[in-house]
């Protein structure tokens, strides 16, 4: 039973692997901004390491944000989304596996890339573990929230900005918890509270976001 959903996810991964651009584009985007930032800041290592926790996090967020639009858009345009709705597949589960596919393509590379960005920004070494952990908890939330945003805007020709406007307020608490965790660790405080709240958000998003996205898809295909 789960195999049919996994096949949807596998198809996305295969398409992404063949195209490649979707895989490295968010990372290149992050690298570009990372290069610009110290140049604009005109400051040494000390200022950089102070803003690093926030910056690494915001970059991972922005890198994901630019890819969200396509979670459902391509499937909508070639008609396969309408097909998923007409089969006996449960739509929230389809959403869940589409989000999983997106996470494997964009979220996981962003988590693995974060230490590279962190090195460039002089993040204190003690914070690396928490940085990876917080991103590991948060990138699935990005993908799930993004699935909701993408499902809402899949009918629109230029829904990119609208999607950002819709998703940004939802991701603000996640940024607070995640960047806060890294910041607290870099200041030698415990990040336990932040990480627990982040896990709570993940559980909540995991249950509610697929339902919301499925509802949006149904309305869009009516």
């Amino acid at each position: 039973m789960i195999g049919r959903y996994w096949a949807i996810c596998q198809r996305d991964l295969l398409a992404a692997w063949r195209r490649k651009a979707g895989l490295y584009q968010p990372l290149v985007f992050q690298l570009l901004i990372v290069t610009l930032f110290p140049l604009g800041l005109g400051a040494g290592a000390q200022t950089l390491s102070k803003v690093a926790p926030a910056l690494v996090w915001i970059l991972a967020l922005l890198g994901t944000l630019i890819t969200l639009e396509h979670i459902f858009k391509d499937d909508f345009e070639d008609g396969s989304l309408a097909m998923y709705v007409r089969t006996d597949l449960s739509l929230p589960l389809v959403v869940l596996f589409k989000a999983l596919g997106h996470w494997l393509m964009v979220g996981l590379p962003a988590v693995l890339f974060a230490p590279v960005v962190a090195v460039l920004l002089h993040l204190p070494e003690s914070a690396y573990g928490v940085l990876m952990l917080s991103l590991l908890l948060a990138t699935p939330i990005f993908s799930l929230m993004g699935a909701v945003g993408s499902a809402l805007t899949l009918n629109l020709r230029s829904g990119g900005l609208l999607l950002s406007v819709l998703v940004m307020p939802l991701l603000a608490p996640i940024l607070i918890f995640g960047a806060g965790a890294v910041l607290e660790t870099s200041l030698d405080n415990s990040a336990k509270g932040h990480l627990l709240l982040l896990s709570g958000s993940l559980v909540l998003t995991l249950t509610l976001a697929p339902l919301a996205a499925a509802a949006a898809i149904k309305v869009n295909l009516e």
């Binding site: 909701v148 939802l170 607070i176 509610l208």
Partner: peptide
Amino acid sequence: LVAIIGLVNLPIIHYSV
């Protein structure tokens, strides 16, 4: 749907901030 999602998130946003 957008308004409902916002309504669910409003307490989370409020308390997190």
